[in-house]
Simulated scan of single mutants.
Amino acid sequence: MTPKITVIVATRNRPQDIPPLLTALEQTQIGGAIHEVLLVDDASTVPLDRSPLRSDAFSVHVLRNARRLGASGSRNAGAARANGDVLAFLDDDARPLPGWCRALLSGLTPERAAITGRVLPLDGGVVSRARQYRYEQRYAVHRPLEPVRFFAGGNSAVWTALFHRAGGFPGTGTGSDNGLVAALDEHGGAVHFAPDLRVAHRNSKGMRTAVQESWRSGRTATDAPTTLRRELRRMAAAVRHQPWRTDIAAAGTNSVLQAIHSAARSRKPAK
């Protein structure tokens, strides 16, 4: 029996992104597997208008947070209202690519508790190219459907029952996506890399946002404590592996962002 999928989308102040997202989901629908789409409005300045957000392929519901909860808190709020057997998480500025639903149904099995897929660029520019290069470095070292230690909250799926047993996304920071990996592990589930689960995504929201995200991800990193010396080695390795010959602007951008991330990690307070 085909499991029912609830797609959860956290959104704030980007109503223009929702209709093309719904259209992309309609185009990837298979046999009614996508049961519902829950749009969680994270206290947008102007509340998300429900009236134009309809689909003949699945039901669409708008939930509104009374106060800002962030992406993780909004996803948890959506999960609490979901009726599907599977929770699929997408960003509001993502577009599922052809075959997305099929890849989800084949990738998520009783033996594979959660899957996370590939993110491809929807936009251009230096920050977008730099971010995509980091993604591709991550993907290159993993075989299809092998267990991984990352979870892309903007393109992923997990069995609903296990998600609730694990307590959902922990915290509200940037590192919360990967924090879910540890929580799922504790409850007997692993995340697997599903390269055919693909979305196009607006990678760049500007250099200022990229800097803020790098700092937050360093401060909220969930792995073992680090030292300044270790972070300097990590930073040097990252700089060496940048595309200096083919895209010097993206290489320089990534080097700066890695330095910020490492600085934030090395300044984490001892537990």
Rank of each mutant, 00 (worst) to 15 (best):
R81Y: 00
I115F: 10
V191K: 08
A94I: 04
L184V: 11
E111T: 15
L122D: 15
M207F: 13
D247N: 14
A140F: 00
A57R: 13
A79R: 10
R54Y: 01
Q258H: 11
T28W: 02
A190T: 13
R216G: 05
L22D: 05
A264R: 00
V239C: 12
Q137W: 06
N83K: 06
Q16Y: 02
C101F: 02
P15A: 10
D177R: 05
S59C: 06
T227M: 01
W159G: 14
W159L: 11
P19I: 06
Y133I: 09
E146Q: 13
S72C: 08
A237C: 08
A66G: 15
G117S: 11
R68L: 05
A224P: 00
Q242D: 10
K4M: 05
L105M: 14
G84L: 10
Q27A: 13
A94F: 00
R208T: 12
T222V: 04
L105N: 13
M1F: 07
K205G: 09
G154L: 01
W215K: 02
V158C: 13
D49P: 00
L180Y: 06
A79G: 11
G73K: 03
N155G: 10
S72N: 04
P147G: 11
A236W: 06
D42M: 01
H35V: 04
G189L: 04
S266Y: 00
P243Q: 11
P19A: 08
P121F: 03
R230M: 06
T6D: 03
N254W: 00
V9Q: 07
R118L: 13
H201I: 10
G189A: 08
R233L: 14
A77K: 07
V256S: 04
